[in-house]
Computed example of a mutant assay.
Amino acid sequence: MGKVYKVTAFAASGEKLLDESISAENDQQAKIAGESLLKEKNLLEQTHRCTSPTGKLILFHR
């Protein structure tokens, strides 16, 4: 069973555009899955982040 990571994306106004949990075995898999989810939702160019269950920042774009 994987760990639960959190993927969040924001508009320039600060509005939350995405707030989803994903499951992954490790940080690298979570980064790939997070990028894939953001690409699917057309949010890769928005400010976004993916955090680990311990709060570690796995992916960030400003």
Rank of each mutant, 00 (worst) to 15 (best):
M1L: 11
M1Y: 08
M1W: 08
G2F: 12
G2A: 15
G2D: 12
G2Q: 13
K3M: 08
K3S: 06
V4E: 13
V4T: 15
Y5R: 06
K6N: 14
V7G: 04
V7M: 13
V7K: 05
T8K: 14
T8I: 10
T8M: 11
T8E: 08
T8R: 10
A9C: 05
A9E: 01
A9Y: 01
F10P: 00
F10A: 03
F10C: 04
A11K: 06
A11W: 03
A11Q: 07
A11G: 03
A11F: 02
A12W: 07
A12M: 10
S13K: 02
S13I: 05
G14C: 04
G14T: 06
G14P: 03
E15L: 09
E15W: 00
E15S: 07
E15N: 08
K16F: 04
K16N: 10
L17W: 04
L18C: 07
L18Q: 04
L18T: 03
D19L: 13
D19W: 06
D19K: 07
E20V: 15
E20T: 12
E20L: 12
E20R: 11
E20A: 12
S21A: 13
I22L: 14
S23E: 15
A24T: 14
A24N: 09
A24I: 15
A24Q: 07
E25M: 12
E25S: 13
N26V: 14
D27S: 10
D27Q: 11
D27T: 09
Q29I: 15
Q29F: 11
A30I: 10
A30H: 02
K31E: 15
I32W: 11
I32P: 07
A33G: 12
G34H: 00
E35C: 11
S36P: 00
S36E: 15
S36Y: 13
S36V: 05
L37E: 12
L37Y: 13
L38V: 05
L38N: 01
L38F: 08
K39P: 00
E40V: 11
E40S: 11
E40I: 08
E40K: 09
E40Y: 06
K41C: 03
K41D: 02
K41G: 02
K41T: 04
N42R: 06
N42C: 06
L43I: 09
L43H: 01
L44W: 03
L44Q: 04
E45G: 10
E45L: 14
E45P: 00
Q46A: 07
Q46V: 01
Q46Y: 08
Q46C: 09
T47A: 14
T47D: 06
T47Y: 01
T47M: 07
T47G: 07
H48V: 02
H48W: 00
H48T: 03
H48A: 07
H48R: 06
R49M: 09
R49D: 00
R49T: 01
C50K: 02
T51F: 00
T51Q: 01
T51S: 00
T51W: 00
T51D: 00
S52V: 08
S52C: 05
T54C: 01
T54V: 12
G55N: 05
G55S: 07
G55W: 08
K56Y: 05
L57P: 02
L59G: 03
L59T: 08
L59F: 14
F60W: 09
F60H: 06
F60Q: 07
F60G: 02
H61C: 04
H61W: 07
H61M: 04
R62L: 08
R62T: 14
